[in-house]
Amino acid sequence: MAETLYLPDTKNREALYESLVPQIAALVEGENDLIANLANIAAALREAFGFFWVGFYLKKENQLVLGPFQGPIACTRIHFDKGVCGASYTQQKTLIVPDVEQFPGHIACSSASKSEIVVPVFAPDRSVAMVLDVDSDVLDDFSEIDAEWLKKVVELIEQKL
């Protein structure tokens, strides 16, 4: 696949995801390097939706450690019991946070972040290997549509683990 995204001229998230996910699948299909794939996925999601921050935190020993991302600088390490990423990791489920200021223990890497969605990525043994973290500078920017489609993106990564 060429390194160009072809997206419909619409603000409809579902239509954008419907177009984007097959392109991400084609982009990672022939590449086995995890970091390269995570970097391209973060870039594709940010380009398609204009999210404030998109990236991955990888489980390394007893923390989540910053991996490939797109956006402003970010927190480097997150303990499993801290923030939305830690909660998603610990609870092993997708978390949608409409207002990060209302989330107990939220880690303020950037005061511009207003809402967040975090999706766990499972290793073959069903442990959480990493999380996909997407931040918006708009309150209540994420819905079940995002959760459903980002899970499909995450499944592309899981197939490579």
Rank of each mutant, 00 (worst) to 15 (best):
M1H: 06
A2H: 13
E3L: 13
D9F: 05
K11F: 02
N12K: 03
N12L: 02
E14M: 04
A15T: 12
A15P: 00
L16Y: 04
E18N: 12
S19N: 09
S19D: 09
L20Y: 04
L27H: 08
E29C: 01
G30Y: 03
N32A: 10
N32P: 00
A36V: 11
N37P: 02
L38W: 08
A39Q: 15
A42P: 15
A42V: 08
A43D: 13
R46F: 00
F49Y: 07
G50D: 05
G50T: 07
F52P: 10
F52C: 01
F52K: 10
W53K: 05
F56R: 11
L58V: 07
L58D: 04
K60D: 11
Q63G: 00
L64E: 04
L64M: 04
V65K: 01
F69G: 05
F69T: 06
P72T: 15
P72M: 12
I73Q: 11
I73A: 14
T76P: 00
R77G: 00
R77D: 09
I78E: 14
I78M: 12
I78S: 13
I78F: 05
H79C: 01
K82T: 00
K82P: 00
G83S: 05
G86M: 05
S88V: 05
Y89C: 06
T90N: 02
Q91Y: 04
T94I: 08
T94P: 12
I96F: 01
V97P: 11
E101R: 14
A112L: 13
K114F: 01
E116L: 02
E116N: 09
V118T: 14
V118A: 08
V119H: 03
P124L: 03
D125C: 03
R126D: 07
S127Q: 15
V128Q: 12
A129N: 01
A129E: 03
M130Q: 07
V131T: 14
D133W: 07
S136M: 06
V138S: 07
D140Q: 06
F142N: 06
S143K: 06
S143T: 15
I145L: 01
D146F: 08
E148R: 15
W149V: 00
W149E: 06
L150G: 11
V153G: 02
E155Y: 02
L156E: 02
Q159N: 12
K160P: 15
K160H: 08
